[in-house]
Structure formats: C-alpha cells, structure tokens
Design a protein around this nucleic acid. Structure first.
Lengths: 257, 257
DNA sequence: ATTATAGTGTACGATGGCGTGCAGAAGAAC
DNA sequence: GTTCTTCTGCACGCCATCGTACACTATAAT
C-alpha cells in the first residue's frame, strides 16, 4: 500500500525503506484516503519544525529521519524530552487540542518525512476512529518516553544516559551511523560538551563505538545495552506493547493482507 | 449540576468544595449521563491506586485530594513524573488505549475522588466527543507537566524544585496546609531526605513556610514563586490555556448557565 | 511513666558534574 | 598550500548533592 506512494503523482521515486508505521499500521482504505494529502519532504539536520508556542501548520510522519523534542529554558539550557522516528508522528498537540506545545522540534538526523496539512489532518482524525485510536496509543508511548526521561535525568549517570540516547537513535535509523557531534548530543542530554566527550571516550576505548568528527558508528550494540540503564529497555518494551509492528505486513503491502 | 451529586442516592452529603473540573467542564446533559456511574470514594494518604503495569479497573476524578504519578526504578529509587488534582483525571491510559502505564499512582494528599468503572468510562468517551476532547486537552497539559519535570530534574537545584513541588501541591488543595513529611517529599523529588530538610530549613528561616512533624504550612506564597524556577509558571500557564476554568460557572452550577 | 517509633537536624568525606580555559587536529575555504 | 573553522581532548578548581552516621525531639504505644 505504501509502495503506491512512490508512484503517486505528487511524489518522486521513494526508496522502499521510507515507511512510517503509524501510516502503514492503518487499514488500506484509510491509507488510500490519506494519500492525496501526504507530501514527502526532506528535512536537513538542524531544521526547526516548530518552536515553543508555535501554532502547528503541519503534522510530520518521519520515515528515515529523527526529530527531537527539546525543551529550551529561559537561560538557554536545554533538555531533550523525547525523540520521534518512523514509529511516530510530530504534532500530537493538533489532535490533543492544544494546537501548540512548549517544546521545540528539531531535526536530529536528516532524512525524509511525510507531512500533512493541519486542516486535512484534523478533518481526517475527527472523521475516522482508526487513525485516532492509533494516534492515541502512540501518544501513550510518547508519554512513557517522557516519564522515563524525567526519571533518568534524576537518577542515572551521563555515561548511562549517553548509552540510552545512542540506542534510542539507533532504533530509528536504517544503519548504525549517526551524524552527530558531541556538542549536539550535549544539547540533547542537557549536559556539558566535555561530559559527552568523556563518556564517548570511554565507549570508544571499550570498542563499543567509534566516532570521528561528527560521525558515530556503533560497533557493539549488545554491550551498549548492557552498559545502559534500565530506561531504554522499559521504553522500548512499552512502545512495542502499545504499537505492535507487524513487520511482514508493515514492510510489504498491508493492502494485500 | 455537580451539586446534585450530593443528593444522588449513591452519595452521602458532599461538601460543595468537592469539584472536579473535568466533570464540571462538561455540558450539563453529559454530566447528567455520567452521574449514575460516578462513585464518591475516600482516598487515604499513601493509597496506591495502581501499580506499574496494572490494568486499570477505574478512572478517578480527584476533587480535594492529590495523586502523584511516581516512577519507581529497579533499585527502588523513585521520581515523581506529575501530579493530578481536581483539574485532572487518573487513568489516561484507558482512553489512550494502553490500559496500563509504567508508573505508580499514589495518594499524596488524602481526600475524595469520584471514580468510574473502566467499562462505563470507555463506552462513555467512545460515544461522545465532548468528553474525549476535554480529556485530550487535559492529556496535553499532563504532557507539558511531564516535559517540564524532565527538564527541571536536569537543570534546577533542589531548593528550586522544592518550591515548584510546594506550589503544584498548593494549587490542588483547598487550604495552605500540606500533610507531608520530608521523607515523602524526598521520595517524590527523587532526592535524599536530608536534602529536603536543608531546603525546607532555608524556606522556614526565610519565613516562607512553617513545618512541624509532617505538617507544612505555606505562609508566603508570593516569595515561594519568586524563589521557584520557571518550571512552575510554565506548567501553570499552559494548563490554564489548555483547560480554561470558568470559575463562576464551575464553582456554582453549570447546569443553570 | 516508660518505652518505642517517626520525624527532623547536623556533620563529614566522597564524587559526579559544572565552568572555564586552552590546545591540538581534522576538514573546509580560499 | 595556507588559513580558518569546527570538532575533540584535557586539566583545574568548584560546588551541589550523595552516602552515611548519629543525635535529638515529639508523638504514639504500652
């Protein structure tokens, strides 16, 4: 079903890896109806999709990019609240009813997303419950991630949090290469750049990652999970419970099922 | 309208202060329909309304009590994710679709709540959009609070966080007396008891609060807000934006409006 | 009255993370 | 090739918070 997006007049050629599970998780007829209103857009690293307080004009369904929800304090200090990839949607406040949030959405890893005009989106989910129910379940997964972030910020070391962050990012990327400087990671985690340098240095010495001027390669994911605090596993497990992904159908064509 | 709850056969005499704004915010006919399924219950301090992973059997609409959503780590360390009072509902996972959450709900301040059976609740919100829309807006307010907690845990001092915590509690209580030991506050904030002792001691010396073996009295709320980090104000402002409370109607009888 | 228990106060070293400053090295720009 | 910028590494003192230990006091239990 999603394959047909690639042949839609408004879309160019689309690699088959570009899926968003909130779309592929919908019944074929709903997907078909959404199609004309979905626009494939490229999102370069660092793009700010919305700022704290902005009224949202679009929702975004990331495919191979990662979006960070970042809270920026008055003094400029920041903290990542959660990350959104191809399992989610950006712009929950449109169906929750707030129209805006107090966080900033910024592209943490470049890639593509499908975006939908706020107006079309609202009429769609107000008309049909399939989409709303799926989005609500995703919202709960998002809440889980936020909760865990709050607890993790309180109790766990920067070393552990870096592991968590790497794993969350890895899950949302097609390969194990992150394009990401230590400075940016520090902004996300809300810590000093030097602290990230130190933590990343440890991981590199252990042979778990290798990095080089803005490029991080994860070599040993298993050991990363061992060093990580419980927070990653809790969020992942709960997300899979809430949003079961039928890989076979989701990655091929759900309309044929 | 809510006044009539006090005369409902299933209810005893109910003080007029016992309101929940998610109920009083609904149209009169919807309230009328909810009434037979609402049961007034007393919630003593420390009651665990649900544990991490529990399937919810009831939703709770607090009136004069405060519920804390607490995340408990494997090693027993805890952190408060958010608080719920008469502005909210406990059991969002029932309409979000997850049925359970990874947090614990515990009564932080004793009082009363209206509870509703999960089954009745689900049929109600699936049938009528008024309630769903209101609940969704509340969900966004909750998300705001969680986000802010995450950021606050990262960047602000225990002194500031204690101020935030006191203010959040104060907003949900009919008076300025908190029944709460320093030990319990420490659990909520996820810090040592001694740290709370120290922070509370400072506030007492400044004449802002007075406390005595499990009883805290806030004497100077204005100065508390001055000492607090931005986090309290952000959450409060956003909550008021999302859930405008028409005090006149809400506190009297909306059915007459 | 006496004894427990719960709540609070204080002290002291340990330490993780911060702020700051600076230096080296890899790429990019010219 | 040279210069400039970005990214990373390291070192220093500082401080908030932690872990631990213990003392004191008010209330409850007997």
């Amino acid at each position: 079903m999603l394959d047909s997006i690639g042949t839609h007049p408004r879309m160019g050629a689309v690699p088959s890896s570009e899926k968003n599970f909130l779309i592929t998780g919908l019944p074929a007829d709903v997907q078909q109806r959404l199609l004309p209103n979905l626009e494939r857009v490229h999102l370069p690293l660092g793009t700010v999709l919305y700022e704290s307080g902005d009224t949202l004009r679009y929702v975004y369904f990331p495919t191979d990019c990662i979006i960070s929800l970042l809270y920026v304090m008055i003094d400029g200090a920041s903290a990542e609240i959660s990350v959104v990839g191809n399992e989610g949607i950006l712009g929950t406040s449109l169906f929750l009813g707030g129209e805006s949030t107090s966080s900033r959405a910024i592209v943490q890893s470049a890639g593509y997303a499908y975006r939908m005009d706020a107006h079309h989106f609202k009429t769609e989910f107000s008309r049909h419950s399939e989409m709303l129910l799926l989005l609500l379940r995703y919202t709960q997964a998002l809440i889980t991630q936020m909760s865990q972030t709050a607890a993790c910020n309180r109790h766990h070391s920067i070393d552990q949090q870096l592991c968590r962050w790497l794993l969350l990012s890895l899950d949302r990327l097609p390969n194990s290469n992150l394009v990401m400087t230590q400075e940016l990671i520090a902004n996300m985690l809300g810590v000093r750049r030097e602290s990230v340098t130190e933590a990343a240095g440890k991981l590199q010495k252990l042979g778990i990652i290798s990095y080089h001027r803005g490029h991080i390669n994860v070599l040993d994911r298993a050991r990363l999970e061992q060093l990580c605090c419980e927070c990653y596993a809790v969020v992942k497990k709960e997300t899979e419970r809430l949003l079961p992904i039928d890989d076979v159908n989701a990655m091929t064509s759900p309309s044929q099922s």
